[in-house]
Design a protein around this nucleic acid. Structure first.
Lengths: 200, 200, 200, 200
DNA sequence: TATGAATGAGTTTTCATTCAT
DNA sequence: AATGAATGAAAACTCATTCAT
């Protein structure tokens, strides 16, 4: 007979938090909302986490380390710089495709919340920018990329563009019909690598 | 005969709010902080504004309408699409150069605060995206831009890149030495229009 | 026509706090109890005091400074050391007679709460002990008191005895009938100065 | 053959509680602190005691019964009233010498915490006062003590002086150098029995 | 006996907003 | 217009106690 899975209450709470944070935003969610959503008692949240902040921090760290790994993974391959950037974009867009609620939380409540959690995790966030910048710099050295754009500038532009597109989908600014993620990835990489102007 | 300007307390409060919001963030500033910074009594803030939110709203609307006007202004000129985008970038970067505190507030507390004020002003914000998209679309029609990138995608990427660069300066992610705004503008427009890959 | 006195809400709160602290003890009284007793809104307590602790601190400081002044006043007179100690005892017993609730709070919640407020005000409390010790020391020098008892010991014994008697009245340990304060003062001073054993 | 004593967890917890209560005070110690200090599981405290209060109650009762016995023991001897009082003081000072942490807890958290545990154990505490008062009364009857001081007054003064001295040592109000307990006992008894004024 | 996860009531403090003057 | 005292709702966090194993 099927047994109820061993209720990992900690995970339960974390997953509930994703849903509530995504739905209401971090500030607007009370700890009791998380507990209710998880179906556990109020105090249990504090049994596993030292504060409401801690819950979000954990969510971010968990996810962001995957991104960092993915970028470095992409950088290690023999692919062209363009392909590497494509891989990075793919990873991020796929993350959104697979868990839009979590990505919404990460972006809206951490990455772009520069005065609160963004500040806390600035170092980790910056590490991603720098890893992307390294891909650009390598591309410039190999001649694949033009040399007159500072790598960090290119990196920030690239990442900023990605986040803006995600925000657009998250908040309905970009029509959902355009949300074919593979196409989005191609368009973005094309724009950044080839530019908007047609080649001679 | 020149009269000492009638102390416009309303403006005084607005300007004080910019400084405090920039310094502490919207959530962390109490209404009394604004009053103190402005050197007026607590209650006067409520005489001129219906709520704390109202103050930020006003700040945003005031500024954002200028941006919208600037984009449309740029679009009206006979310049090339590339130059138009350059003009838009110039306006935004100049805004930051001239009043970094206000721009910090606009971006951090409104534009990127998608769950609070960003939501409130979504329509106005979107209007900017669309105006930029129009420039791209026109460029595609005239053959100046390639046609295989959806204008809204290009617009979001372009604007996202700008905001990311501003955020980088605001929070020290990008070294200040790189903050030559004209150069930044050129690099950005180059990246978006020419792409990272060298032309044949 | 009699006018309602200008409601000094701050004082109102302080006086209400005395009553509630005396009735329920500091720990058991909620801030709302104070506000209710004072007939003011919850938040007003925080308008005037930074915390619940602050209220008690203020009460203590207010009262204790009077005691310190009284001891020093007594010391300045030309009276005998015995009379000086009598004056100190009189002041304390009178304080209790005039405002037993306040004295209860001072003794129970501060002076004898050595692990909480007693710790905070240790220096002030000690000052009283030392002033009394000085009276003893002077008495020893003049030959009015025997020299083989350390002044600080005598002071602590004297003060400890007083507080114990007060506690006895406060908590009904000593029958109220014995509470004739002047007689109590005499008995205490007799005990400390003459001793329990009859003179030759 | 000597067997390792069966780990008496109950005693272990009680002893741990003494240390933690002495260190942090009753209110500031959580049940988990006690468990941690004792090296046992959280819930075990509740296996042996019905509540946190219970632990302190037990500590008090255990100790206080010894004091009551000691006073009555002293009273039974053929010694002079003065010697009896000396014996009582000796017992208390010795208790402190042998287990200062426990005595600190008894005094600070029970005996002087008149609004919480002091109230609970008032009867037991009072019994001590009365036993001492009886010694005084007997002394008066035999002519060893003067008759014009109410026995209960003398008792309270005597005990209050002792507790004040202990408090002084516990909290460093009295320089430790003065802490020779035998001398302290003599000074105290001298003060109470002979008085501060020199004999004719 | 022993463990420690689970529960949930309770209280301080903050601060936006109102209002009498 | 201007002041700042007065209001009271809201929520995080703590921790004693219970309970399933």
């Amino acid at each position: 007979m099927a047994q109820a899975p061993p209720a990992d209450k900690r995970r339960l709470i974390l997953d509930a938090a994703i849903r509530v944070f995504a739905r209401q935003g971090f500030h607007a969610t009370r700890v009791s909302d998380i507990a209710d959503e998880a179906g556990v008692a109020y105090g249990l949240v504090y049994h596993y986490f030292s504060s409401k902040d801690e819950v979000l921090n954990e969510l971010f760290i968990e996810r962001w380390s995957l991104l960092l790994a993915a970028i470095e993974e992409a950088d290690k391959t023999a692919a062209s710089p363009r392909q590497k950037l494509g891989a990075v974009a793919t990873f991020i867009f796929d993350s959104y495709r697979h868990d839009p609620e979590l990505m919404k939380v990460i972006i809206v409540e951490v990455t772009r919340a520069a005065n609160s959690f963004g500040k806390t995790h600035l170092e980790q966030i910056q590490r991603a920018y720098e890893s992307i910048a390294k891909i650009v710099a390598d591309g410039q050295e190999s001649g694949a990329f033009r040399g007159d754009v500072a790598p960090m500038f290119a990196s920030m532009s690239f990442y900023g563009a990605i986040e803006q597109l995600l925000s657009g989908w998250i908040f309905g600014t970009i029509p959902a019909s355009a949300s074919d993620f593979d196409q989005a990835r191609d368009l973005l990489v094309t724009t950044i690598c080839d530019g908007l102007e047609p080649r001679g």
